[in-house]
Structures are given as C-alpha cells and as structure tokens.
Simulated scan of single mutants.
Amino acid sequence: MSGTFIHATAVVVGTTGLLFIGPSGSGKTILALAAVEGARRAGLFSAFVGDDQVLIASEGGVIIARQPPVIAGLAEIRGSAIVPVFHVPAAVMDYAVRPVALEGVERIAPEDERAELAPGISLPLIRLPHGDGVDPTLRLGLLLAAQAHKMH
C-alpha cells in the first residue's frame, strides 16, 4: 500500500467520505461514531474505514483512505474500550471534518477552507462544533447540505 499515514478517522456516510482530523482527544472518533450511527438510523449505508490512523493517497484525482489491517474493524472510545465497528477497507474521501469546541471559535469559518493532509493532498474542510448538547449529526447534515449546495 502506498500513501501517507495520518492521524485521522475515516468513515463513509451514504456515498460521502468523511475524514475526521484534529489533535488527539478532540472528539474525532466519537463524532465519527455518531455520524455512522445517525446515518444507519436514517436508513443510509455507513461504515468506518479506519480509526486513529489511516493511509491516504491521491489516485486518479480523488483522495482514497485505507485502513491499516492491524486495526481494521476497531474504534477506540477514549477512556473506555476498543469496540468492533462495521467497516470497509477503503473509500473515496470528499471532506475533512475538524471537531471544534464552541468556546473561542470564530462565528463563521473562512470561505472555501481546505485541510492540508499531506504534501499535495487536501480536502475541503468542514468545522464541526460540538460539546454543547446539540446532536452533532444534525449540524453535520446541515453543513454537508450547504457544501453540496455550493457545488451546484
């Protein structure tokens, strides 16, 4: 497998690949779990690609995330346990999602913000506020719909 290992959690929700990025302890895994479970409850396909570390590569104009075999099908719930999750070995990633705490965050993110993942590899960035009791999947759904609307 060629590519670059990065500290991230990758999931697929419906047909959209989401790469949760940010420092350790920022909420990547729990927000990714919420997105996958929320999609599943809504009747959409959803699966993990990899938790904590993923291999990313640019192939044919798209960004592919792959799971390292040693942690395939596992997700860590910080402070509690490592749990089995439904997973796929690889998927196209469409957006990077950065969890952000609401305290001290800008009210509106910069227009057309991108996340640099590795040299020459970037994705459109969605900042996902969390930690105030609002269902993060509601915010994520609204933000993804706004991104799709901007594309058309």
Rank of each mutant, 00 (worst) to 15 (best):
S58I: 05
E59S: 10
G60M: 01
I64G: 05
Q67G: 15
Q67D: 12
P68R: 03
I71N: 12
I71V: 15
G73H: 09
A75H: 06
E76M: 10
R78L: 09
R78S: 07
G79E: 07
G79I: 12
S80R: 14
S80L: 15
S80N: 11
I82W: 04
V85A: 09
F86G: 14
H87K: 11
V88W: 06
V88R: 08
A90S: 15
V92M: 12
M93I: 11
M93H: 09
M93D: 02
D94P: 06
A96Q: 02
V97T: 02
R98G: 05
A101V: 14
E103W: 13
V105E: 14
V105S: 14
V105D: 12
E106L: 14
I108E: 10
A109P: 11
A109T: 09
P110T: 13
D112R: 14
D112T: 13
E116R: 10
L117W: 00
A118E: 00
P119R: 10
I121H: 02
S122P: 02
L123M: 01
L123S: 02
L123A: 04
L123G: 03
P124F: 02
L125P: 00
L125E: 03
I126W: 01
R127K: 13
L128A: 06
L128H: 01
P129D: 08
H130K: 11
D132Q: 12
D132I: 01
D132T: 04
D132V: 10
G133A: 07
D135F: 01
P136A: 05
P136D: 05
T137Y: 02
L140P: 03
